[in-house]
Design a protein around this nucleic acid. Structure first.
Length: 561
RNA sequence: UGGGUCAUGGUGUAAUGGUAACACAGAAGUUUUUGGUACUUUUAUUCAGGGUUCGAGUCCUUGUGACCCAACCA
């Protein structure tokens, strides 16, 4: 686990949450810590949730505590078990094991009892006003709210009414239970917030047992309290809820969990809003929640990101209270850094150009050794077939090269990686003038590892022997959006990148790549990191491009344009 | 003349009254049979004004700006 350990150097700086925890531990306020990750099961988890997961689990790990996974399932109409399963998978895939997997719905009984306690104290009442009336009565941030007739109902009557609500005697929306707090509070959340609403809906866990469901504010803090969560960490937009969170716990006299807030993650060139992500899926802009262009955890997994890279990313972005936008390049750095060490190198030619070695005997094949990963010699070597007809990348040949182009061009020489130096003698063209093949001669004494040719070439390119090459589908992904902050657009979908996915139906791969399993990761030498997609079959392997290699030449080309 | 949160290089995050640093990104270079990796060098930062102090990114004050809050969502 890449999470920090507490035996680090003394001067290692702490983030604001670590400071709070260390102070709480030092003062004896707590002798252990318990955090929780509380997703609502109404969608798949995205990279922003990954930040929260790494934070909550990471903090617990650092201070010898634990973390619960608790589903905030208080709204039966939007929540589904499909999402519950996906979320559990994602948390485990990231590398964290919850101390307990719990549900806010487990506490519906207790929450109901506590609501009655509040009513008995005269701190809650059943309100028959419409949502419009309530909004009206609440006033505005600049004008105080006004009380309605229901606010003065006696506890006895409220108790009876609340029981009738629970018993299903009223239709949806007929009335609500509201806390009786302060209608003139500058904090709108304290102006008699809703505690319960009526929904005759089937719940994914409690079935039809309940027709009244607690609101977030009545469920969350108490759930924390029941579990004895010490540090309840959430995002900034919940700051105004904290006063209410504390009020509920105080009125009930239960375990005083405390809420702390941090700034959620924003990633450039993407959206992290469940609503928007759901739209992308439902309207078919992407194929699924785990379409590799999505910023969901499951999509990153399918695309070829490792859990280690995402945890490293979470560590590097840090945590604070100010709004932030993280550049995609940091995430890409993290996955390249990880895969550079782990991924075996393989040759693949995505856009083939045929090369004929005119001085190489027809029918001859020799096997040349090449390294599996220069970063890790323990991964050994493999053999590559070499013969008269080869494929190279179209990009690696130019008839009229610009300055500093050191790949193949007429009359020029280049090294075929782990093989021989070749010289371009002539080109074949079709009627339209496109180069269809390149004729070269090779230098027999330039064989890699036994080069006595004395020749020096600048360029090294990858290649494949035509006879042994096998076909594969390769999916090239690019950013889904063309603008840095799609969410700020009038219509974020109008900024979708039309080239976010390019499918290469007929790419060539080396034989060593033909038997792979979904999820396996490779570096296609000089091209990038690729991951075997679950769509892969034995007859037709499918690879997803996780990320390209850093390409300073491409940058150079773009600059000169 | 509602309340709240936050302001440090392009982007993030540190510096806890004592030399503004680290990473990513950018630029230049060395090495290299991946124009990758590694390594070296380098550009660039405290929102503004006032105050306290020997000394302020940090404390006080006044502004300015951004974001959040008036769902029977979480």
């Amino acid at each position: 686990m890449s999470t920090n350990n507490n035996n680090n150097a003394v001067n290692e700086s702490l983030n604001f949450l670590e400071e709070i925890i260390e102070a709480d531990l030092a003062s004896g306020k707590f002798d252990r810590i318990l955090t929780r990750f509380p997703p609502e099961p109404n969608g798949y988890l995205h990279i922003g949730h990954a930040k929260s997961i790494c934070l909550n689990f990471g903090l617990a790990l650092k201070y010898g505590g634990k973390t619960n996974l608790r589903f905030d399932d208080t709204n039966p109409v939007t929540e589904e078990t499909e999402y519950v399963d996906g979320i559990i998978d994602d948390v485990r895939w990231l590398g964290f094991e919850p101390a307990q997997i719990l549900y806010a719905s487990d506490y519906f009984g207790q929450l109901y009892e506590w609501a009655k306690v509040l009513i008995e104290k005269g701190k809650a009442y059943v309100d028959f006003s419409t949502p419009e009336e309530v909004a009206e009565q609440k006033g505005s941030p600049t004008t105080p709210g006004v009380a309605n007739q229901y606010r003065d109902t006696t506890p006895e009557e409220n108790l009876a009414l609340f029981e009738r609500m629970k018993n299903g005697e009223f239709p949806d929306g007929h009335c609500t239970l509201r806390a009786k707090i302060d209608l003139s509070s500058p904090n709108m959340h304290m102006r008699d917030p809703y505690l319960y609403r009526i929904k005759h809906a089937h719940h994914h866990r409690t079935g039809d047992k309940w027709c009244i469901y607690p609101m977030y504010d009545w469920a969350h803090g108490q759930s924390d309290s029941i579990e004895q969560i010490t540090h309840s960490i959430c995002t900034l937009e919940f700051i105004p809820h904290r006063e209410l969170y504390d009020w509920c716990i105080r009125e009930l006299g239960v375990f005083p969990s405390k809420q702390y807030e941090f700034a959620r993650l924003s990633l450039s060139y993407t959206v992290t809003s469940k609503r928007k992500l759901k739209q992308l899926v439902e309207e078919g802009h992407v194929s699924s929640w785990d379409d590799p262009r999505m910023p969901t955890i499951s999509a990153f997994r399918r695309r070829g990101y490792t859990p280690e890279s995402i945890r490293e990313f979470a560590n590097r972005i840090g945590v604070a209270k100010r709004d932030n936008v993280i550049e995609m390049s940091l995430l890409e750095f993290c996955i390249r850094e990880d895969l550079n060490k782990k991924a075996l190198r393989r040759f693949a030619v995505l856009h083939p150009l045929k090369v004929v070695i005119t001085n190489y005997p027809e029918g001859k094949t020799e096997w040349l050794e090449t390294e599996n990963n220069p970063e890790d010699p323990t991964t050994g070597t493999r053999e590559l077939a070499f013969s008269r007809e080869l494929y190279i990348e179209q990009d690696d040949f130019m008839e009229n090269p610009p300055p500093k182009y050191f790949r193949l061009s007429p009359g020029g020489m280049v090294r075929l990686k782990s093989a021989f130096i070749i010289r371009c003698e002539s080109v074949e063209k079709d009627d339209a003038g496109n180069v269809t093949a390149v004729h070269c001669t090779y230098v027999p004494e330039s064989r890699s590892g036994q080069d006595i040719s004395g020749l020096k070439v600048q360029g090294v390119i990858h290649w494949l022997s035509v006879a042994q090459a096998q076909k594969a589908e390769v999916r090239l992904y690019d950013r889904l959006f063309q603008v840095e902050d799609p969410a700020a657009e009038e219509d974020f979908k109008a900024t979708i990148n039309p080239d976010s996915l390019k499918v290469i139906e007929n790419a060539w791969i080396e034989p060593a790549l033909s038997k792979t399993e979904a999820g396996e990761k490779f570096q296609f030498t000089r091209l990038g990191y690729f991951c075997v997609d679950p769509d892969s079959t034995e007859e037709r392997p499918v690879f997803n491009r996780t990320v390209t290699l850093k390409d300073t030449w491409q940058k150079e080309v773009k600059k000169s344009r």
